[in-house]
């Protein structure tokens, strides 16, 4: 035991150890730790930001959805209105067309009737003359009454 030169040797060893630790051990380790701390803090902040952004995006999405719904219902209403309009228009046109066709048909029918009446009237005269001839043939001398008959025919 007792103090001797070992003390000096030990002091040198100690000084070297401290110097080395100060130079090569402490700075890189603390630097790495600080950097990791920084990274973790950044990561946490980013996560926080992400959550915030997600909430914002959700809000935006619901807004857009609401807008789209309103738009679609509006479009639907307009389409319905338009379709009923089209139907009404078509109905009107159809009625007009029908009426026109009906009128045309009626006028044609009238024309045909008139024509037929004319034809019948002509025929009736002929028939009446023929009937009268046959009746009168026996009692009327054609020659004698020819003037009369001709008059009659002319009157017809």
């Amino acid at each position: 035991m007792g103090i001797n030169a070992t003390l000096i040797g030990q002091m040198i060893t100690f000084a070297l150890l401290v110097w080395f630790t100060m130079k090569f051990v402490w700075p890189p380790l603390t630097a790495a730790m600080k950097e990791r701390q920084h990274k973790i803090a950044e990561g946490l902040a980013a996560a926080e930001r992400g959550v915030h952004e997600k909430v914002l995006a959700e809000n935006k999405a619901t807004e857009i959805l609401k807008e789209a719904k309103a738009q679609s219902s509006e479009i639907l209403g307009r389409a319905e209105k338009r379709s009923s309009e089209i139907v009404d228009e078509a109905k009107g046109e159809a009625r007009e067309e029908g009426e026109r066709i009906l009128a045309h048909a009626r006028s044609e029918v009238e024309q045909e009737m008139n024509k037929a009446r004319e034809a019948l009237r002509a025929e009736v005269a002929v028939l009446a003359v023929a009937g009268a001839e046959q009746i009168l043939a026996k009692e009327v001398d054609a020659a004698a009454h020819s003037d009369l008959l001709n008059n009659l025919a002319r009157q017809l």
């Binding site: 150890l17 080395f20 630790t21 051990v25 402490w26 380790l29």
Partner: peptide, 15 residues
Amino acid sequence: FLVLFTWAAKKATSG
């Protein structure tokens, strides 16, 4: 001590 800690310090990453 120094070898152990220097080794660790050399390989120290922030990961």
